[in-house]
Amino acid sequence: MGGGRVDVVVIGGGPAGLTAGIYLGRFLRSVVVLDAGNSRARYIPASHNCPGFPHGIAGEELLERLREQAEEFGATLVRARADGLEQVAGGFEVAAGGTSWRASKVILATGLADRLPDEPWAEEAIACGALRLCAVCDAFEARDGRVALMGPAAGLAGHARFLRGYTAQLAAIPTDRNLELDEVDGMRALGVEVFAHGGTMGFDGRRCRWRAADGRVSAFDTVYPYLGYEGRNALVADWGLEAGEEGELKVDRYQQTARPGLYAIGDVVSGLNQISVAVGQAAIAATHAHNSLPFVPRT
């Protein structure tokens, strides 16, 4: 697998990490991108808000194009999960699958992990659009359909207000408790149907179906499960870095953490989890890392 000394190690092979690899390769820097193969982008059946793809592009295809582009410009892509990160003299040491690299800079692009319904059919439902994970990404495609949002009661109102702009057929399904009377009134004022807590979600191969506690079944064209997520920041969990409630790392305007030389980009940082945001953060971090490395004149 290699190993040795490089300018930068990028940990994460999603759109953010691969874009950083592209930039650093074009800066003529030695860069290794570690890709565990679990980018959230792989779930996307077709992204229609990714700039430059007016007819949409599947997440896996986008990732493959980015991999090809990164390698074209000299980035070394390694399919491995980083299992160690230490600060050492002159930079960092990154370990993955029995191999280690010394790097002056490290860019964390480890993303986050969505909490999906604990059902064997969840990924199949995502693949056909019956379950969707990001209303900012694809509520346009779900417009005017029969849509449900499900998640903890406290967070439903904000999501409902956003989705109500896309459909008049919206339902809210709380997963932890019944909504309070004032919460119900607020939902109904928006024209949102409210379900009682308790019931099960099923999938028939095409649409999701909610079976209420009283046995009534409601079918939906699209369900948005707002069950939260977990930031993948375990490599630096004990580094004392400032992070938000769900693990998102805090960075400066150059995407650098409180540890000089350690950058964070993409969903492990952003509150707006979008490919376009991740790509922009990657460009900023890679450029700053390049400018901070020793100057190397061309011979």
Results as ranks from 00 to 15, higher is better:
C134R: 10
D267V: 02
G56A: 03
H288M: 01
S292I: 00
V194S: 01
P45K: 07
P297T: 14
F295H: 13
A157V: 06
G74L: 07
T19H: 02
L116F: 11
R253I: 05
A189H: 09
R188N: 13
L235D: 05
G271Q: 04
V223W: 05
G198Q: 08
G90W: 03
P15H: 11
S276E: 10
R81F: 01
L85G: 08
P15L: 05
V223G: 09
L262V: 08
Q274F: 07
H159Y: 10
A153E: 03
S218D: 03
R115K: 13
P152E: 05
E248Q: 15
H159T: 12
T99C: 10
G14L: 05
R146N: 07
L63Q: 04
I57D: 04
L272F: 04
D214Y: 00
D238H: 12
V106S: 00
A234C: 05
N291W: 08
G158Q: 07
Q256L: 07
E61S: 13
I22S: 04
A286E: 04
M1R: 13
R209H: 09
R211M: 11
A109L: 00
D138L: 06
G271T: 02
E246H: 15
R188S: 10
F203V: 13
C50E: 07
F195R: 15
R164D: 08
A172T: 14
E248M: 09
R161P: 03
L34D: 09
V296W: 04
D144H: 11
A130Q: 05
T222Y: 05
R42M: 12
E246T: 14
G91L: 09
A285W: 02
G37Y: 02
E246F: 14
R132Q: 10
E183C: 01
A20L: 01
V192N: 02
A212M: 00
R102W: 08
R132A: 11
D214S: 01
L181W: 15
V184H: 00
H288I: 01
P45T: 08
A125G: 02
M201T: 10
R298A: 15
A285Y: 02
D185C: 09
A148G: 09
Y23T: 12
A109W: 01
Y43E: 10
D238A: 15
L163C: 06
T19F: 02
G231D: 03
F195L: 14
S292L: 00
G111D: 04
T76E: 14
G4N: 04
A154Y: 05
A237W: 03
G12S: 12
H288N: 01
F295L: 15
R232N: 15
I107L: 11
Q255Y: 04
R209K: 12
A16V: 10
A234H: 13
A89W: 10
L190W: 07
T110D: 02
G3W: 03
G244N: 06
Y43W: 11
L116Y: 08
G240Q: 09
G158I: 06
D35E: 14
T175A: 13
G266A: 03
E119H: 12
R161F: 11
G247Y: 05
R206Y: 08
H159W: 13
